[in-house]
């Protein structure tokens, strides 16, 4: 296959998305970041010949796979107006849940993967979701608690040891390609479209936006806010578990060391993508643009030979500036319908 097919994952993520989300009149906040992403890709391609190559794009995409999964889950939670700090710990724990199913119980790999994702969703829904949605505890308190709790459990079950594993399925997930595209990337594409569908094309997705937009009004209109919150934290837990399995696949082992900072990168990606803290606005379309932006930035800066410390400085500054830009834009336009600026006048007349 040629280079053209190999880079396909990025364009399909952009082309239909922009048009569709735009017409759905909310969540086009990420257009600025998308433009920035395209500029970044062009700039790196010119400056650094190794950047726009099949091999590098493959590395870049699989490099953001874990961030991608966690960010998609986090987006759903943030759309409901909440937050989930425990996703990094959930990820590490899931790595060992998989080990438990696969190595200790001898369950076939594919089934073990599915069970791990289900377990992650159950834990996310029944612990975080229940305490936040049903009991009504503040999400920061709950997820700070479970952040520490899951991490502790991970150390207990692993004895602090990395457990290596060999599984042909996991190796395939981590390193094989299909139609010239890494399996990992196929999984990324699939999760993206499923979450896009759920959020944009189902009543549940509407409940998520209504819960984040105004929980009191949603409840008054008969929306089951409690169930929506529980489901949102379950989705986030399931996605973190999937990320945990991917992690196992990439390093052929489960490590308790965890991914403590993944939640911060994920938050940055979600915010870059135009989903706001407080909920009700945004979507997964923006989030994947945010994830790709962070991935490209890091990848390009590494290729350019910039020290890791400088990469952090630059990506931190860009996150703040990009979100500031969105905020200024929002301040001027309370609605996200691009045509509203012109139509509102007629409204008043």
């Amino acid at each position: 296959m040629t280079a053209a097919t190999d880079v396909e994952p990025a364009p399909p993520a952009r082309k239909p998305l922009v048009g569709r989300l735009w017409s759905w009149s909310s969540g086009n906040q990420f257009v600025g970041v998308l433009a920035l992403l395209i500029c970044l890709v062009i700039a790196f391609s010119i400056v650094e010949p190794r950047f726009f190559t099949v091999a590098n794009i493959r590395v870049m995409l699989t490099g953001v796979a874990i961030l991608w999964m966690v960010s998609l889950g986090l987006t759903v939670v943030m759309l409901t107006g909440g937050f989930d700090l425990s996703l990094g710990s959930m990820l590490s724990l899931s790595g060992f849940i998989f080990i438990g199913f696969y190595l200790h119980l001898g369950i076939p790999a594919l089934l073990a993967v599915i069970l791990t994702v289900i377990a992650g969703a159950l834990i996310g829904g029944l612990v975080n979701g229940f305490l936040i949605g049903r009991v009504g505890m503040p999400f920061l308190v709950v997820t700070i608690g479970t952040l520490s709790l899951y991490q502790g459990v991970t150390y207990l079950v692993s004895n602090g040891q990395t457990t290596s594993l060999t599984s042909s399925l996991l190796d395939a997930i981590g390193f094989n390609t299909a139609l010239g595209i890494p399996i990992t990337v196929w999984i990324m594409i699939a999760t993206f479209f499923v979450s896009l569908f759920v959020l944009r094309m189902t009543y549940f997705g509407r409940d998520v936006y209504a819960t984040g937009g105004n929980p009191a009004a949603a409840r008054l209109a008969g929306v089951n806010v409690t169930r929506t919150l529980i489901a949102a934290y379950a989705i986030a837990g399931g996605m973190a578990a999937l990320a945990g399995v991917l992690q196992d696949a990439f390093i052929s082992a489960a490590s308790p060391a965890g991914s403590g900072t993944i939640i911060f990168d994920a938050t940055a990606a979600v915010l870059l993508g135009g989903t706001v803290l407080g909920g009700g606005i945004g979507g997964v379309g923006g989030t994947v643009v945010g994830v790709l932006f962070l991935g490209v930035l890091q990848n390009g800066l590494s290729l350019a030979g910039l020290a890791a410390a400088w990469q952090q400085v630059i990506s931190g500054a860009i996150v703040i500036l990009a979100v500031l830009g969105q905020q200024l834009q929002r301040g001027r336009r309370p609605t996200f319908d691009p045509g509203a600026l012109f139509r509102r006048r007629r409204d008043r007349a």
Binding site: S25, S26, Y203, R206, Y209, A210, G213, N214, A216, A217, A218, L220, A221, G222, V223, N224, G280, I281
Partner: peptide, 22 residues
């Protein structure tokens, strides 16, 4: 504060109560 989800569209708000059992 409780009548409408102001961030959502007119159509979505209009349908919210009728579709709450779907």
């Amino acid at each position: 504060n409780v009548g409408l989800v102001l961030k959502m569209t007119v159509a979505e708000n209009l349908m919210m109560a009728t579709t709450s059992r779907s």
